[in-house]
Design a protein around this nucleic acid. Sequence first.
DNA 1: GACCTTGTTGACACATCGCCAATAGTGCTC
DNA 2: GAGCACTATTGGCGATGTGTCAACAAGGTC
Lengths: 205, 205
Amino acid sequence: MCRSVGRVSVQAVRRRRLEPDARREQILSVAIRLFGAKPYAEVSTTDVARDAGVARGLVNHYFGTKKDLYLEVVRVMLTVPDVALSQLPQGELSERASSIVNWFLDVVSRHSTSWLAATGAGGMADAEVHEVIAEAVDHAASGVLQALGSDDPTPALRAMTRAYVGLAIWTAQEWLQRGVLTRDQVHSLLTVSLLAMVEQVFPQA
Amino acid sequence: MCRSVGRVSVQAVRRRRLEPDARREQILSVAIRLFGAKPYAEVSTTDVARDAGVARGLVNHYFGTKKDLYLEVVRVMLTVPDVALSQLPQGELSERASSIVNWFLDVVSRHSTSWLAATGAGGMADAEVHEVIAEAVDHAASGVLQALGSDDPTPALRAMTRAYVGLAIWTAQEWLQRGVLTRDQVHSLLTVSLLAMVEQVFPQA
DNA sequence: GACCTTGTTGACACATCGCCAATAGTGCTC
DNA sequence: GAGCACTATTGGCGATGTGTCAACAAGGTC
């Protein structure tokens, strides 16, 4: 009567066949949990396999190399429901800036642990990993520019907005990890900075 | 005439005794060069030992673990001659802000490769590494606050300044790595942001 | 030259990773 | 229900990297 008890049970675990998609998804979720809790070097593929109740070779079979698996994890962690960004109110400039900042703070504080892990607190800064993060930053910058009403911005304007996104990420880390600043203070800092950039720096580009 | 031929070179390398400080310094300089060129995982202690013409065990003997060696490298890379910061002109607030930014841009552009490597483009984001970077950021924030004339700032003020230093780091990376922005644009962005924070956000704290 | 201090070496034990042939679930056919 | 084909899954092999430690030898001293 012993059908697959957990993983480390006394009873030997019978082999289980799953649909490739399901198995892949299961391993990925385990990897997300582990990489969210410990930095890259301290998570072995053996750990992932054990927690997934699976042979280590299967991890490589589905994700290739360990770094490939990690890249996949970071991609998922940085994937954010940005539909809400396009539904922001269309009021004054300062109103819109405030709304963008609020939306950002909501998102990062909701799933803060995985977000912190992905943005560099506990990852590994390889060239490819950096590329994935850069893509997410660029995507976020696009969202900010669109919410500000600037379509088809110049490269310099995009670059400046990326820098602002960097400030937002850094400040959010400061907020969530150290706990010195209040949310209101963070909100004020980011809103004021955004307005200052839009009004005084962006006209250059 | 053949006395113990070495291993690789045509010329036999006789064992050489060095003063501990000298040997340690030599290995460290090799490690700085390698870690500045390739990310953490792609530099093995064997590489460091080979380039230093030394047995691998000696690296561990002087620096303990590989991560310890890397921490030492990052510390050196982030060590910056900040004496010039205390000699900035004492003019208007906007003058001082501009001078600080210029000083920062000079420093990071001078030894950009190692600085980029240390700030996260090619390192590994372990907890301890992050701690070393955080110390450097806090040190930089102190310099900025001092140059602005604010002695004994509140914790919130320090935190906000750390966030600004984060913006500076991020923007400098954007500048040096992508090459989209000009130095003038970067200078303008950082100066305007600093002034906006000082005048509109800092009063809260 | 003998001797002692200690910088330096080489190898052993262990962990992790990528790979691949062998194995065994699972559904299908008859 | 038995046989069968497909393929998800396994377990182990080889390669690479790391930390440790006893043994070795370079250089100064008497």
